[in-house]
Design a protein around this nucleic acid. Sequence first.
DNA 1: GCTTTGACTCTCG
DNA 2: TCGAGAGCCAAAG
Length: 108
Amino acid sequence: MKPNNSFNEKVYALLKKVPKGKVTTYKNLANKLGTRAYRAVGRAMACNPYAPKVPCHRVVSSDGTIGGFNGTKNPNSAPIKRKIALLKKEGVIVKANKIVNFERIVVL
DNA sequence: GCTTTGACTCTCG
DNA sequence: TCGAGAGCCAAAG
């Protein structure tokens, strides 16, 4: 369960590389990891043991949409909405769970 | 060790 | 333009 030395670790590392006020996409992360495990990346976020370290809310789908972590039935993902609000403060405009300014999506 | 699921993406209808 | 289905990879059970 949640191996600290695995694929997900690499995802967290890339996520931490994302500058503040910027967001990234699952596809991008997977591509950087040299894999097509887009879903694996998202799943790693669901199990992310690095809550404050890994800004999962900073990761969006390739279309710029938030995805589903905000609409998840998981109670742990509920307060993430608050993180999105903070993200907006940083310069990332999120409207209706979607990134308005795509310029904020940075490619690692 | 095999089967199921998942915060996704792409293509076809 | 919108909707549904198949595909890929990895981790959890």
